[in-house]
Design a protein around this nucleic acid. Structure first.
Lengths: 114, 114
DNA sequence: CAGTATCCCTCCTGATACTG
DNA sequence: CAGTATCAGGAGGGATACTG
C-alpha cells in the first residue's frame, strides 16, 4: 500500500469515529438544545410551560423531542395521576452535566457567530 | 400582568436568545462537524482528500458544506491556477478556536452517549 | 482534479383537529 | 392539561452524469 493511501486510510478512520457526529445526532437539531437550555435555567417545567416557553415549537415536535431526550436519559419525565394531567420535566444528572459544555459553546457562539 | 405570565415571558425570552441554536444552525448538521474535525487533525486538505476521508459524503454535499463554512469564516479555500486544478482547504483562526469546544464535546460524548 | 447540473425521493416539520 | 392522529409541503440529501 502506498503512503498516500495509508494517509487516506487513516483519515477515513478519523472521520468515521468522530464522536461529535454522535453528539449532533442525539443532542443537536432545531429543538433539543433549546429544551435543554430552558430546563437548565428553570429546573422543573410542565409540558405546557415548555410549549409556551419555546417559541414556534408545536406540541407534536415538543413531545417527540422530549421522548428522544428521555430515551437517552437526558431528561426525566414525572407524571402525576391527577385530573387534569400534570407532568413535570427536569434534567437528569447526565443532562445537567451538559451545562459546562453548553455554556462554553454559547460563549464561543456569542463571540464568533452572528 | 400575573406572576405566572411574567415567568413565562421571562422563559420565553431565554429560549429565543439561546445562542446554542445559532451554533447548531451554523456548525451543526450531518457533515460540518466532521469536516471541521478532520481539518483539525490534518491541517491542510484537498477537495479529493476530504471526499475520500469523509465516509458517505457526496461531492455535492461536500462542496456545499465547504462553501457554508467558508462563508462564516471557519475554513479557508485556496485555489491554485494549475491544470489539473488544485484546491486546498484549511481552518481559519476562528475555525481552529473551535478545537477546545469540540474536544470537550467529544469527551462528554464518549462518556455519556453510545 | 474539483467541482456543477439534474433528477428524485425521503423524512422532517408545521398546521390542524381531536381525546382521555 | 398533556398529549396523539392525520395530512401535506418543502428542504435536505443521495445517485448519477457531465465539464473546464
Amino acid at each position: 500500500m502506498k503512503t498516500e493511501e495509508k494517509k487516506i486510510e487513516k483519515i477515513y478512520h478519523q472521520a468515521e469515529e468522530c464522536p461529535i457526529t454522535v453528539f449532533m445526532e442525539q443532542i443537536g437539531g432545531k429543538w433539543k438544545p433549546v429544551i435543554i437550555w430552558v430546563l437548565l435555567l428553570n429546573e422543573v417545567m410542565r409540558f405546557n410551560e415548555l410549549d409556551k416557553a419555546i417559541k414556534g415549537i408545536s406540541q407534536k415536535m415538543l413531545s417527540q423531542q422530549l421522548k428522544d431526550l428521555e430515551k437517552i436519559n437526558i431528561i426525566n419525565r414525572k407524571s402525576y395521576p391527577v385530573i387534569p394531567p400534570k407532568v413535570e420535566y427536569r434534567l437528569t444528572k447526565k443532562g445537567k452535566s451538559l451545562k459546562e459544555n453548553l455554556t462554553k459553546i454559547m460563549e464561543w457562539s456569542n463571540q464568533n457567530l452572528k
